[in-house]
Amino acid sequence: MKKSITPWDAIPAAICILLSGLLLLCPLLSKASAAENSFAVISYRDGRASETYSLSSDREIPIQCGQYSMLILIEDGKVSVAESNCPDGICIKTGKISKIGETLVCAPAGVSVKIVSTVKEGIDAFIG
């Protein structure tokens, strides 16, 4: 081996940095595929069967529940309540949900939306 720095030494360093840049870009691609395995499950308090929608395609879901009507929006793999005539509007204020396990609830209307996934959940923590 040479004993003083040579221009060739930059090559391994460049490979490391380029590879890390490339790997950092990958999550942008994998996020899109995460939506494919995620679903929004809409459940009703009044006993209606729950409905499941995929997060991969954008859509608007109008819901009529008793005296309340609301509009649920699926956009870019995220679910939100766009419109609702419920008194407190907490469901609208919750904003967009996309992570597995997150929920949107409209208590007056008795509607809840939960994100579920077909992919097994990852490990929360690891000690050792």
């Binding site: 081996m1 040479k2 004993k3 720095i5 040579t6 060739w8 030494d9 090559i11 391994p12």
Partner: peptide
Amino acid sequence: KKRLSYIG
């Protein structure tokens, strides 16, 4: 080894 130093 003819090109790289120990840094590389």
